[in-house]
Amino acid sequence: MLFQVQMTVKLPTDMPSNQAAEIKAKEKAYSQELQHAGKWRHLWRVAGSYENVSVFDVEDNAELQEIISGLPLFPYMEINVKPLCRHPSSVHDGDA
């Protein structure tokens, strides 16, 4: 199943910079692991904000929940999820 996930990060303003850097490094490693595994299919930064729009390719809602809740930045995120399905006019076979 494909899901569009929009994540807005809102770190506390009083979080020490070294703690924020450590969380961000863990987040990067975890997200790249998921990308290499084909679970996190697309990742785009929303220009001008600490936000991204991503496409996940997972078995079901439960797997998506497990992945998202495992993100080191999860406690500091606002997340919106939309299930996706292939558009019948798409010319790309890999859209499923």
Score class of each variant (00 low, 15 high):
residue 77 M to A: 03
residue 35 Q to F: 13
residue 32 Q to L: 14
residue 74 F to D: 09
residue 73 L to Y: 04
residue 2 L to I: 08
residue 69 S to I: 00
residue 52 N to E: 11
residue 70 G to R: 07
residue 59 E to P: 00
residue 81 V to I: 15
residue 40 W to K: 03
residue 75 P to T: 02
residue 6 Q to G: 07
residue 61 N to K: 13
residue 39 K to R: 14
residue 20 A to C: 05
residue 37 A to V: 00
residue 55 V to M: 10
residue 4 Q to H: 12
residue 28 K to G: 05
residue 19 Q to G: 00
residue 79 I to A: 06
residue 9 V to T: 12
residue 74 F to P: 02
residue 77 M to H: 02
residue 56 F to C: 06
residue 54 S to L: 14
residue 4 Q to N: 14
residue 18 N to Q: 10
residue 21 A to H: 06
residue 59 E to W: 09
residue 96 A to R: 15
residue 9 V to K: 04
residue 39 K to T: 09
residue 47 A to D: 14
residue 9 V to D: 01
residue 41 R to M: 13
residue 95 D to H: 08
residue 82 K to C: 13
residue 42 H to T: 14
residue 9 V to H: 02
residue 48 G to C: 03
residue 62 A to K: 14
residue 10 K to F: 09
residue 96 A to P: 00
residue 43 L to F: 15
residue 75 P to C: 04
residue 2 L to E: 08
residue 9 V to G: 03
residue 55 V to I: 15
residue 67 I to G: 02
residue 24 K to W: 08
residue 36 H to N: 15
residue 2 L to D: 02
residue 33 E to M: 14
residue 28 K to E: 10
residue 69 S to G: 07
residue 12 P to R: 06
residue 91 V to M: 06
residue 60 D to R: 08
residue 46 V to D: 03
residue 93 D to P: 00
residue 5 V to L: 05
residue 68 I to K: 02
residue 18 N to A: 09
residue 58 V to L: 12
residue 3 F to N: 09
residue 16 P to T: 08
residue 34 L to P: 03
residue 22 E to V: 01
residue 5 V to M: 04
residue 49 S to A: 13
residue 50 Y to I: 11
residue 4 Q to G: 04
residue 15 M to K: 11
residue 53 V to E: 04
residue 55 V to F: 10
residue 94 G to V: 08
residue 81 V to Y: 04
residue 91 V to L: 10
residue 40 W to N: 08
residue 36 H to Y: 09
residue 49 S to I: 05
residue 14 D to P: 01
residue 13 T to L: 12
residue 92 H to P: 00
residue 34 L to M: 14
residue 67 I to W: 01
residue 48 G to N: 06
residue 33 E to L: 11
residue 64 L to G: 03
residue 41 R to K: 15
residue 80 N to T: 14
residue 2 L to P: 04
residue 69 S to T: 13
residue 73 L to W: 01
residue 91 V to H: 02
residue 25 A to Q: 11
residue 19 Q to N: 07
residue 38 G to N: 03
residue 25 A to W: 04
residue 53 V to D: 04
residue 90 S to E: 00
residue 1 M to P: 09
residue 79 I to N: 07
residue 96 A to I: 14
residue 68 I to R: 09
residue 35 Q to K: 15
residue 88 P to M: 00
residue 58 V to E: 07
residue 29 A to E: 13
residue 33 E to C: 01
residue 46 V to H: 04
residue 20 A to W: 01
residue 74 F to H: 15
residue 84 L to T: 02
residue 52 N to S: 14
residue 73 L to K: 08
residue 68 I to G: 03
residue 34 L to Y: 02
residue 27 E to L: 01
residue 62 A to P: 02
residue 28 K to D: 06
residue 60 D to P: 02
residue 39 K to M: 12
residue 6 Q to E: 15
residue 66 E to G: 07
residue 29 A to W: 01
residue 74 F to T: 07
residue 27 E to S: 05
residue 31 S to G: 08
residue 8 T to Q: 12
residue 41 R to N: 09
residue 11 L to Q: 09
residue 84 L to E: 02
residue 59 E to R: 15
residue 40 W to T: 05
residue 19 Q to R: 09
residue 53 V to A: 10
residue 73 L to E: 10
residue 72 P to R: 07
residue 90 S to Q: 00
residue 87 H to P: 00
residue 62 A to I: 06
residue 61 N to V: 10
residue 82 K to A: 15
residue 33 E to R: 15
residue 37 A to L: 12
residue 49 S to M: 05
residue 29 A to C: 00
residue 28 K to V: 11
residue 13 T to W: 12
residue 6 Q to C: 13
